[in-house]
Design a protein around this nucleic acid. Structure first.
Length: 431
RNA sequence: GUGGGUGUAGCUCAAUUGGUCGAGCGCUGGAUUGUGGUUCCAGAGGUUGUGGGUUCAAGCCCCAUCAUCCACCCCA
């Protein structure tokens, strides 16, 4: 029979891996809580229209990377390709700005894009995204960048660079766009085919083309930072001051623009060393126009998203395996041993201990091997003798062979306190 | 979407110019009665990703397809 395999670009995260994921998620929750951010969970499926309006019709994501299909009534649905659109939709739908002027939200979960899979790039991938809605002040931008770096620090990621730019606003970007377009037109014979096309539809994107000749043109092109209006200029300047006050190293990349249409003013990107072409680990910026573009009132906001698959990939290069708590393994053999063992295990678990056994039973030797493989600290043996005496043999797997506590027969009613004392010493809890 | 590399045991990899596909690790069992790790012994596990083709003969050559990796594209 033909076996069924996972869809291309989508993969299982097996139990041997989920420990890493859970630790990373826990650390992120903790870091975000420190800044007062709260989690929001939105549906994975949204009306296609939401992404067309927020990300932009002309973007690659919307044009060719979305998983879109028809619902039974013919309406178009899309598996979310990113998180901000849904968050903003929810923000508006729930009249959030009327409940409180400022919302600090984050989300974590799978996103879907139909791209060619590669290392660190999957069709179902995981992001954590952080949004600060309702503040126009540069302090908001600075806080988000601070949060981003704190998050990376919390999960133990190091070796990256922060890049910063400003895209201006609705009042200064159009005139810059025009100047850029004129410049590009003059130099169009040096541009690649792709850029010659983009020159008209989205001239800013020419700046981050990787083709060498385009890069040269980009270097000589008028810089947006020189064409910001006064408000955008002072905003950006204040953001820089804040980042410097936090002693965060960064550099200006005037060629960093965004693939999503909704960004305004500050944009930033965190690049990790040693991930090849997939080195953008987190990125974000300000999107003052998005809430109103989706039908809400004019509401400024900043946000960023981080790619967890890539981060974990990088983390695995350096980090040690997460520690597991010391555990107990119960071995039973002979008449009456199994039910007695069940009662013992139930009792110990009620005390909060990690207790396992080999449900296949088998020889004592086989069960001991299992206990060792599972990394158990203590093995409790209940054989015929122990059952008859109402006792349990406790073996300390880590103790030296000649140690007095290596193996001891303990009365069943003294067992719990014996183990609790042993384990609290082992785990460094207690006095 | 474009170009290229790679698919052999659960994992990492061998296999001469096309001539019986092996090893290490892992897994299971055993080394005298109820005790793990180390050691020793044994065993299981493969239509060589899949489907065609060439040939007396294909893991190896050809075509297709799927998966994966790298680069481009794009992005987190």
């Amino acid at each position: 029979m033909k076996t069924i395999q996972a869809i291309r670009g989508m993969r299982d995260i097996l139990p041997e891996q989920t420990g890493w994921w859970r630790r990373m998620e826990r650390q992120l929750y903790a870091a975000l809580a420190q800044f007062g951010y709260q989690e929001i969970r939105t549906p994975i499926l949204e009306p296609t229209e939401l992404f067309k309006r927020s990300i932009g019709e002309e973007t690659d994501i919307v044009e060719k990377e979305m998983y879109t299909f028809e619902d039974r009534d013919g309406s178009k649905l899309t598996l979310r390709p990113e998180g901000t659109a849904a968050v903003v939709r929810s923000y508006i739908e729930n009249s959030q700005w009327q409940k409180e002027p400022l919302s600090r939200w984050y989300y974590m979960g799978p996103m879907f894009r139909h791209e060619r899979p590669q290392k660190g790039r999957y069709r179902q991938f995981y992001q954590v995204g952080v949004e600060l809605l309702g503040a126009e002040a540069p302090a908001a931008d600075v806080e988000l960048i601070d949060v981003m770096l704190q998050c990376m620090g919390a999960i133990g990621l190091q070796g990256f660079t922060l890049e910063l730019n400003s895209l201006g606003c609705m009042s200064c970007r159009p005139s810059y766009r025009e100047k850029l377009q004129i410049f590009l037109k003059k130099n169009q014979e040096k541009l690649c085919d792709n850029c010659r096309r983009r020159m008209d539809t989205n001239p800013l994107r020419v700046l981050d083309c990787k083709v060498n000749t385009c890069r040269q043109v980009g270097e000589e092109a008028p810089k947006i930072l020189d064409h910001l209006c006064q408000d955008c200029g002072t905003h950006f300047q204040t953001v820089r001051e804040g980042i410097e006050a936090l002693s965060i190293a960064y550099h200006i990349n005037h060629r960093m623009v965004r693939g999503l249409d909704y960004y305004t003013r500050t944009t930033f990107e965190l690049l990790a060393d040693g991930l090849g072409a997939q080195n953008a680990v987190a990125a974000g910026g300000r999107y003052d126009g998005l809430v109103s573009a989706l039908g809400g009132s004019q509401m400024p906001a900043v946000g960023f998203a981080a790619g967890l698959d890539r981060i974990l990939l990088k983390l695995l290069e350096t980090l040690q395996k997460p520690e597991t708590p010391e555990s107990i393994f119960v071995v039973t053999r002979g008449p009456g041993a199994w039910p007695a063992g069940l009662a013992v295990m139930q009792n110990l678990r009620n005390k909060g201990l990690v207790v396992r056994s080999d449900v296949r039973q088998g020889s004592i030797k086989a069960q001991m091997k299992r206990a060792d493989k599972d990394g158990a600290r203590f093995v409790l043996v209940l054989g015929e003798d122990e059952v008859a005496e109402g006792a349990v043999t406790v073996k300390d797997m880590k103790a030296a062979p000649d140690s007095a506590d290596k193996q001891k027969k303990i009365a069943r009613d003294a067992l719990t306190s014996y183990l609790l004392e042993k384990l609290s010493v082992a785990n460094g809890v207690g006095k």
